[in-house]
Amino acid sequence: MARLLPVLGLLLFLVPLLGGRGGNAQISTLLVYLFGVWALLIVFAAILARQLYPADTPDQGADPDGGGE
Protein backbone atom coordinates (compact mmCIF):
# COMPACT_ATOMS: atom_id res chain seq x y z
CA MET A 1 0.00 0.00 0.00
CA ALA A 2 2.84 2.32 0.85
CA ARG A 3 4.21 1.60 -2.58
CA LEU A 4 0.90 2.16 -4.35
CA LEU A 5 0.20 5.57 -2.91
CA PRO A 6 2.67 7.52 -5.10
CA VAL A 7 1.37 5.73 -8.19
CA LEU A 8 -2.15 6.72 -7.31
CA GLY A 9 -0.96 10.25 -6.67
CA LEU A 10 0.78 10.41 -10.02
CA LEU A 11 -2.36 9.25 -11.84
CA LEU A 12 -4.52 11.79 -10.07
CA PHE A 13 -2.06 14.59 -10.70
CA LEU A 14 -2.01 13.74 -14.39
CA VAL A 15 -5.78 14.05 -14.76
CA PRO A 16 -5.58 17.73 -15.78
CA LEU A 17 -3.79 16.55 -18.93
CA LEU A 18 -7.00 14.96 -20.16
CA GLY A 19 -9.13 18.08 -20.16
CA GLY A 20 -6.29 20.46 -20.85
CA ARG A 21 -6.56 21.33 -24.54
CA GLY A 22 -10.18 22.34 -24.66
CA GLY A 23 -9.70 25.02 -22.04
CA ASN A 24 -13.27 24.72 -20.89
CA ALA A 25 -12.23 23.38 -17.51
CA GLN A 26 -12.60 26.23 -15.05
CA ILE A 27 -9.25 27.16 -13.56
CA SER A 28 -10.79 27.56 -10.13
CA THR A 29 -12.28 24.05 -10.33
CA LEU A 30 -8.91 22.69 -11.36
CA LEU A 31 -7.27 24.53 -8.50
CA VAL A 32 -9.65 23.10 -5.95
CA TYR A 33 -9.27 19.63 -7.48
CA LEU A 34 -5.47 19.68 -7.33
CA PHE A 35 -5.27 20.92 -3.80
CA GLY A 36 -7.98 18.47 -2.75
CA VAL A 37 -6.06 15.51 -4.15
CA TRP A 38 -2.94 16.84 -2.54
CA ALA A 39 -4.57 17.08 0.87
CA LEU A 40 -5.99 13.57 0.56
CA LEU A 41 -2.59 12.15 -0.32
CA ILE A 42 -1.08 13.83 2.73
CA VAL A 43 -3.73 12.35 4.99
CA PHE A 44 -3.21 8.86 3.55
CA ALA A 45 0.54 9.17 3.83
CA ALA A 46 0.20 10.19 7.48
CA ILE A 47 -2.01 7.19 8.25
CA LEU A 48 0.39 4.85 6.50
CA ALA A 49 3.43 6.27 8.22
CA ARG A 50 1.70 5.75 11.56
CA GLN A 51 1.08 2.11 10.69
CA LEU A 52 4.56 1.39 9.35
CA TYR A 53 6.34 2.88 12.31
CA PRO A 54 4.03 3.06 15.32
CA ALA A 55 5.16 5.72 17.74
CA ASP A 56 6.68 3.33 20.26
CA THR A 57 8.77 1.06 18.04
CA PRO A 58 12.44 0.94 18.90
CA ASP A 59 14.87 2.58 16.53
CA GLN A 60 14.98 0.57 13.35
CA GLY A 61 17.82 2.63 11.97
CA ALA A 62 20.99 0.82 11.20
CA ASP A 63 23.66 0.59 13.82
CA PRO A 64 26.00 3.46 12.95
CA ASP A 65 28.98 1.20 13.47
CA GLY A 66 27.60 -1.06 10.78
CA GLY A 67 28.11 -4.16 12.88
CA GLY A 68 31.88 -4.19 12.78
CA GLU A 69 32.00 -7.54 14.52
Partner: peptide, 17 residues
Protein backbone atom coordinates in the same frame (compact mmCIF):
# COMPACT_ATOMS: atom_id res chain seq x y z
CA UNK B 1 16.89 8.51 12.79
CA UNK B 2 15.24 6.58 10.01
CA UNK B 3 11.83 6.96 11.65
CA UNK B 4 11.96 10.69 11.11
CA UNK B 5 11.55 9.96 7.44
CA UNK B 6 8.16 8.40 8.17
CA UNK B 7 6.99 11.65 9.72
CA UNK B 8 8.52 13.73 6.97
CA UNK B 9 6.73 11.57 4.38
CA UNK B 10 3.50 13.37 5.11
CA UNK B 11 4.65 16.47 6.97
CA UNK B 12 6.92 17.74 4.23
CA UNK B 13 4.21 17.44 1.53
CA UNK B 14 1.99 19.30 3.96
CA UNK B 15 4.60 22.05 4.20
CA UNK B 16 4.78 22.28 0.42
CA UNK B 17 0.99 22.28 0.26
Amino acid sequence: DERHLATASWAFPLYLF
